[in-house]
Nucleic acid binder design. Structure first.
Lengths: 213, 213
DNA sequence: GTTTACATACATTCATGTTTGTATATAATA
DNA sequence: TATTATATACAAACATGAATGTATGTAAAC
């Protein structure tokens, strides 16, 4: 049980990230030792230090694994209508596009335990200081970009005369973004699911409906 | 510089909580030592251990100091109209009541640096595990109770025929709660204020307006 | 005189980073 | 193709620096 092939080494790397997720979730990021992670991954700290510089690097790897794909997917679902692609979300009306992209995120979280756990870690098991503060800024940037996409969708909806009332697409987008941000937080904190988890989809539909003519 | 009067001791206690806030904010809760807090408060760890059992107890004290008053105030502003009290928020229409209670919280946060810092600690400088997990549950309970108050206000608004559309007060309340929860999070994370801090009031007004007939 | 409100000193545990050791994969060379 | 060299992927040991909790000391208040 010593030297492995490159493929084995990659598996070790992944299992360390996997282990980190489990231990971070249970003990919080600060309180988990590299020893904890190593034990969970059934390796020694030597292996951990071989693959990662320190705990922060593991944290970043974990984030990249779960966060980025979801952000990308959301971005994609909010993209401008593309008439060549009949199978995608893009032929829906803009409001339905918004609704679908939000719902999709929730569905993903519901079906993917690991992603759910990672979100929980990022939201309530991590202190955003020093090495971790940058992650927060990145998240904020992602949020901004998504808000802009939502705004564009609302602008399309407006020009298609789909909106009730006369609110600015900007204000609508910010409101939607804050709603969804709050929903994700509550969704994560609501461990037993009694408050938000089981009605998240409903809440999204209701939120979007409020804007529909 | 040894034994003090009861009043002096109470001042020491408060200065320890004050110091904890400063250090928690800068270093995160986990990474701050009781030594850090003691130094900041210009006492020794002896004094800290005299007044508090451990770090978690300081954390709880800090929370009680900043959180509870704000919650109470919000609760109060959402209370049922009281015709005897002409000076309060209670003579406003229910939707304005909701708007005011949300705005009030933001104004408070804007004017009270310490409260703002405490919120920041609770949201992004603390890991909710073990000793701290209970705090999260308490926060969730507070949220539930506020949501209920908001729902009651929406019900009053509905019976006064102030609402546009035909959405249920329950759905409206949840939506508002999630919006505000998201707003608080963003408000706190948005350190330089460029994204949310300076337009929070506007966003609240716009959110409530969306529901007004 | 006793309790209070601390300061100081001590003991222990624990986490981190580094260093060293080592078996094996892989590339180089002959 | 067989041999050798080197880099890889770890394990194990070590050294250091905290951080915690407790125990003890002490001066002033009551």
């Amino acid at each position: 049980m010593v030297r492995k092939t490159k493929e084995d080494a990659e598996l070790t790397r992944l299992s360390i990230i996997d282990a980190a997720r489990i231990v971070f979730l249970a003990r919080g990021v600060s309180r988990t030792t590299l020893e904890h992670i190593a034990t969970q991954a059934e390796v020694t700290r030597g292996a951990v230090y071989w693959h990662f510089k320190n705990k922060a690097e593991i944290f970043h790897a974990l984030r990249d694994q779960a966060f980025l794909p979801l952000i990308d997917r959301m971005d994609d679902m909010l993209a401008v209508e593309n008439t060549n692609d009949k199978t995608s979300n893009k032929q829906e009306d803009p409001l339905t596009q918004i609704e679908n992209s939000l719902c999709h995120t929730i569905v993903e979280l519901n079906s993917d335990l690991q992603m759910r756990q990672t979100y929980e870690i990022m939201m309530i098991k991590c202190e955003y200081v020093e090495d971790f503060a940058t992650v927060l800024q990145e998240i904020l940037n992602n949020c901004s970009s998504i808000t802009e996409k939502i705004q564009l969708a609302y602008e399309r909806a407006k020009s298609l005369n789909l909106l009730s009332g006369s609110h600015s697409p900007r204000a609508l987008a910010l409101d939607t973004h804050l709603f969804f941000s709050g929903l994700l937080h509550m969704w994560v904190k609501d461990a037993d699911g009694s408050r938000f988890r089981f009605q998240a989809i409903e809440l999204i539909k209701s939120h979007v409906d409020l804007r529909r003519k």
